[in-house]
Amino acid sequence: MGLVAGLMTLITAVALAAVPRAKRAQSPTPLPAAQVAYLTSCGGCHGIEGRSAPGSVPTLRGLTGSFLCTPQGRDFIIRLPDVALTQLSDRRLTEVMNFVVFDLGAPVAGGEKASLYTVAEVARLRHHPLTDTGLTAYRNQVVAGLASRCRVPLALHVYAAPVTASR
């Protein structure tokens, strides 16, 4: 009995020690969950690194942080239809938008004083999606508000609706 138990212990210990080591050696580091959600929900059009085709899809990199210059701008990017109506949960959407604004979109207006979006804030704002508003005109109004308060990049003014075709 002692021999059998010892053998079983040895086999189990070897198996437990060997499997994780083999996995660690082969696999790269997983991307953060917020970045994965950004890539699968937004990154195809807005670009893997937030850079997209100027004039077709708004570029995010280096620009979205400017929207935090005014309360209207801060609310606007959560109320955008494709943001507010996404299938992501409130918590995941909050993580994604903090990634989009504070990582991709830096520098952030307000610098270190700018606060992260909270789950409660995102949950409240996404209940008021901009679905019954002329979006381009409203965006121009928001950007004009930003420009009157902060120095915003020229690229923030560039926007045009994308065109699609089918195979």
Partner: peptide
């Protein structure tokens, strides 16, 4: 459309 594979994804390219 964000996750549709039948679209021609030439949006933003010089030509479709």
């Amino acid at each position: 459309p964000q996750a549709n594979n039948h679209i021609i994804w030439c949006i933003g390219a010089n030509t479709f």
